[in-house]
């Protein structure tokens, strides 16, 4: 092996030395778990529309609330991180993962108090999601209004 002199050479060498994530296995696990969470959402939705007789928009909101509850409940009993270790994006991308990203820092920073610990850290990930989601929706709404 030749001596490494520059940072660029070293980065290249390190990239060769660093093992990649087992991508195919990860993709498969993300697909299965992500699909399963969506299917669970569909079952809840179907039950609410055909079983309970809610209209579609209400059922959709109740489904979201239910999935959020499940995600946060599994976070609180120290289970969601284990699902996440297995499924990766399969349990990050669904709304249950959003719920997990809200509850996990709030639980972790409880030791720093109810206001700046729990209250502030609740939005550690949810904050950026809402900032960009809502801002984009306003931009989309404005363009839609102007084009109408």
């Amino acid at each position: 092996m030749k001596a490494i002199e520059t940072k660029a050479d070293y980065q290249k060498y390190v990239d060769e030395k660093t093992p990649n994530s087992p991508i195919w296995g990860n993709l498969f696990k993300a697909f299965i778990v992500g699909g399963a969470i969506c299917l669970m959402g569909q079952f809840i939705m179907d039950y609410l529309t055909t079983g309970v007789g809610l209209d579609k928009d209400t059922a959709s909101s109740v489904t979201s609330i239910t999935l959020v509850f499940i995600g946060i409940f599994l976070t609180a009993i120290n289970v969601y991180n284990r699902i996440g270790k297995f499924a990766g994006a399969g349990s990050i991308v669904p709304i249950t993962g959003f719920a997990n990203s809200i509850a996990s820092p709030a639980i972790e920073f409880k030791s720093e108090g109810l206001v700046l610990g729990v209250g502030a850290k609740l939005f550690q990930v949810a904050g950026p999601v809402l900032v960009y989601g809502i801002s984009t929706s306003i931009a989309v709404g404005l363009i839609y209004y102007l084009l109408k």
């Binding site: 660093t18 093992p19 990649n20 994530s21 087992p22 990860n26 976070t75 120290n78 969601y80 991180n81 284990r82 699902i83 996440g84 270790k85 499924a87 990766g88 349990s91 990050i92 993962g97 997990n100 990203s101 509850a103 996990s104 820092p105 639980i107 972790e108 920073f109």
Partner: peptide, 16 residues
């Protein structure tokens, strides 16, 4: 807690 992510966050650790 200081350097990475909350323990309860469901993320994966890369092999490195």
């Amino acid at each position: 807690k200081q350097f990475r992510f909350p323990l309860e966050l469901g993320n994966q650790r890369p092999p490195s």
